[in-house]
Design a protein around this nucleic acid. Structure first.
Length: 420
DNA sequence: TCTGGGGTCCTAGGACCC
DNA sequence: TCTGGGGTCCTAGGACCC
């Protein structure tokens, strides 16, 4: 059996933990740049705020209701996620962190009769020690556990156990095809056109049809719905195959120097992530684009793929390459809204080949990066960074509603005033 | 005025090899 | 009428997930 543990309204709940006055209120968390809604409290959902709704529309659409808005505070959410993960790893033998707010538990060896109590214990321990409500779905495969979890969210105790064939069929017959994990909008449309409307229909569909129309992924999914586990267990996360940073600017930019600085800053941040997982990148893709929502304005989207002579992890070299790419991509006459950097062809830093013809010894550079990372770890990100990233703020994100990093910065810790 | 970001996997088609 | 078989690697594009 597998359990899927999922935090309810995770980002909104994290904000509420440190601000109990928000309980029962409409709370939303906005995307980077305070753009659109990416998390909602139960009350926010109830009044009709949808995922992806632009933040600036909230006050127009709900004039009568106080909506508490927060910029996304990933430092806080990541730290809360770690706390929950620690509780889970202590509670069961095997945990797979699926996302920041979800984890699979492998319940192999646990007696079916014990499952309910063990899951209840996990729920209450997380509530007590971290302050977050979680929903738990248990079933014989990951896909079914995921669907059971969805069911759990709408039940009073936030728990759904789907342990035998009868309850599997009940679940499948009440789950619409769109709610099946792995079936997105496109494939749901295909399925409906073929007369498949429920998860149950997908389970019963001819395998040849599935294989032809939904590829091997669909075939695997069908097995999972039959209770035959075929998804791999990923206890330790696989090393990343790509590292990307793409951000919208706080305001549109026309100056190539500003674009180059943004690209250099993103490149530096990507390189930092690269060194964290001790990898090097063989190539880099740089792209810039205008605002896709401005239909009247002139649009452009261009990108460039650069191959490094040898795999790189050096912030300065990668930032310099990003700048040169911008110089080639930039066209005057456009208002640019976004730049992205993607590092590709990642290899392990220990085993990379050095370039026989490269005149530059890299040892000093490695030491420099090491020192830079150490200083930034101690004194906060961005304390030392490539000058190529500039000092201007023109392109930086709007994040005007950020809560404190309560759990990771001692100077931002929650202050409680007690009266007797 | 203001509309997110970061990933993975699969397929089809072309080029190439023996 | 008939025109081999088996494979790898790369790229672009699509679909999906959170």
């Amino acid at each position: 059996m597998y359990a899927l543990v999922d935090c309810n309204n995770f980002y909104a709940s994290c904000e509420t933990v440190f601000n109990p006055g928000l309980r029962g209120q409409a709370v939303v968390v906005l995307s980077h740049n305070d753009g659109c809604v990416i998390a909602r409290s139960a009350q926010a959902k109830a009044i009709g705020i949808t995922m992806g709704m632009p933040g600036f529309q909230l006050s127009d659409q709900f004039p009568a209701i106080k909506i508490h808005q927060f910029s996304s505070n990933f430092t806080l959410y990541g730290s809360m996620s770690n706390r929950i993960h620690n509780i889970l790893t202590a509670a069961v033998p095997a945990v797979e962190n699926y996302s920041i707010d979800e984890a699979f538990l492998d319940l192999t060896g646990m007696k079916p009769a014990d499952i309910k109590d063990r899951m209840l214990a996990i729920q209450s321990q997380i509530k007590e020690q971290v302050g977050i409500d979680v929903s738990i779905g248990v079933a014989p495969t990951k896909t079914l556990a995921k669907m059971a979890n969805k069911e759990a969210k709408v039940r009073p105790g936030h728990m759904a156990l789907v342990l035998d064939e009868g309850s599997i069929l009940d679940l499948l017959k009440t789950t619409p095809i769109t709610a099946v994990w792995g079936i997105g909008e496109q494939q749901a449309r295909l399925c409906r056109a073929a007369g498949l409307h429920l998860a149950f229909d997908l389970r019963q569909a001819p395998t040849a049809w599935i294989r032809k129309n939904l590829s091997v992924l669909g075939a695997r999914l069908q097995q999972e719905l039959k209770g035959i586990a075929c998804l791999a267990w990923h206890e330790t996360p696989a090393p990343k195959k790509a590292i990307a940073i793409g951000r919208s600017f706080g305001s549109p930019q026309t100056d190539p120097i500003v674009l180059a600085e943004a690209a250099a800053a993103y490149a530096d941040a990507c390189a930092r992530k690269l060194r964290e997982q001790s990898a090097k990148a063989g190539s880099m893709q740089v792209s810039i684009q205008t605002n896709v929502h401005q239909h009247q304005a002139k649009q452009t989207q261009r990108s460039l793929l650069l191959q490094f002579a040898t795999p790189q992890q050096d912030s300065l070299a990668i930032a310099a390459a990003a700048r040169s790419a911008i110089a080639r991509l930039y066209q005057p006459g456009f208002a640019y809204k976004k730049a992205s950097i993607v590092l590709l062809d990642l290899v392990d830093a220990q085993t990379t080949q050095t370039d026989l013809f490269s005149p530059t010894p890299t040892v000093k550079r490695d030491q420099l990066m090491h020192a830079m990372d150490a200083i930034n770890r101690l004194w906060g990100r961005q304390k030392i960074r490539p000058a190529a990233a500039g000092t201007g703020k023109a392109w930086q994100m709007r994040q005007q509603k950020m809560s404190p990093r309560y759990t990771t910065r001692i100077d931002e810790i929650l202050v409680v005033n007690a009266k007797d």
